[in-house]
Write a protein that binds this DNA or RNA. Structure first.
Lengths: 198, 198
DNA sequence: CGCATCTTGGAATGACCGTTTCAAGATAGC
DNA sequence: GCTATCTTGAAACGGTCATTCCAAGATGCG
């Protein structure tokens, strides 16, 4: 019978996610990954394949373990606009303070890099953008049902606006944008789509 | 007396801008630049310095020759919201069709790359974001004067919202987002900030 | 224990990285 | 046309790139 792995692939992948998230795939070498994870080149290639395959796996892990829970919570929060506001508050908190401050969003970052020409990566970016938009859409439908939305507002189109706004927050936060200003900007946007009478 | 340059530095820099714009600084090698410009390494280094210095010069050229004219036109257009709408229409046109389709914005792209840790680059990103926001602010002040803006709307804060929206357009267009959908999204955003009575 | 099977360490692969060096070539004033 | 001064071509620099290979080590079953 064969030998078993002497390391935890899951923990390794989490380390790799952070490297690619912070530095991007083009600026991260295999040597960086070897140094950060402590495991050998052979084990890396045997377990995850080449660099781009590893990046794809890491990006998928990011989307599933970081984005998805937040988006699911947003979609299932039935309060309407307060749910959207909380989503953005949490987003700005994550982007501007703590361990991941000024790292931006790994998915947003991938949009701007040369890796987006890879069809598999681009499909992942489209899927993730759709998930973001759909979660916002669900929250806005609740907002409309509660009469929180401005009359005549289209929840689907507005969800797309807020999705692009989130991308903007991700980008600017990576360059060190002020959290307070981002919060005020989001508040302004939400005020613009909310019902004047409410 | 000395020899003179056997090439046009301005035309060379324009070629370099396109390389960095499309592929990013991390994925563009000096060899790529040598191949694209046709001139020698020695001439490159003697004229522009090293790679990062060349990237900085190229990014500044992009900001001055590509962004600035568009932003100046926006700031000087006194029509108000129609000026903003035209700005976004032109932006989406540039981002989604023609020679630069799916290249995104070189400044937005720089936000997501590892190059943003360079203080000189980050200062340039901040300056450029401020220019974008100020141009939008000027246009929104005109809109307010013309009674096009929703009552109670803050032109300064709204300008920041639209600036982040522009970043979102830049990002998503690079991943091949549909121009029609982007136009509709922008229209929705502008509708949300416009005066209901107008 | 012996053996088949997988993992691991570490060296080696050729290609490319950004940068430097230097001789040969080109130019403008004398 | 000579010379001083800059530009240009081409090779070479040490280092790092992603990837591969293979012997040595570890494992669980018979």
């Amino acid at each position: 019978m064969p030998d078993v792995k002497h390391f935890d692939p899951d923990a390794t992948l989490e380390t790799v996610v952070r490297l690619f998230w912070r530095q991007g795939v083009a600026s991260t070498g295999i040597q960086d990954i070897v140094n950060a994870t402590g495991l050998n080149r052979s084990s890396l290639y045997a377990t995850f394949g080449g660099k781009m395959q590893l990046y794809h796996t890491a990006l998928e892990r990011y989307a599933d373990s970081r984005s998805r829970p937040v988006l699911d919570r947003l979609a299932e929060d039935e309060r309407g606009l307060p749910a959207v506001a909380d989503f953005f508050t949490g987003l700005i908190e994550t982007r501007c303070s703590g361990e991941y401050a000024q790292w931006g969003c790994m998915v947003s970052n991938a949009h701007a890099g040369a890796e987006n020409v890879d069809p598999a990566i681009r499909a992942l970016l489209d899927r993730q953008h759709k998930r973001l938009r759909d979660a916002l859409h669900a929250a806005l439908l609740n907002a409309q049902a509660h009469g929180q939305l401005a009359p005549g507002a289209d929840p689907a189109a507005t969800a797309e606006v807020l999705a692009l706004l989130a991308h903007g927050v991700n980008l600017r936060s990576r360059a060190g944008a002020d959290a307070g200003q981002l919060r005020q900007t989001v508040a302004t946007a939400l005020h613009a789509i909310s019902c004047p009478a409410a």
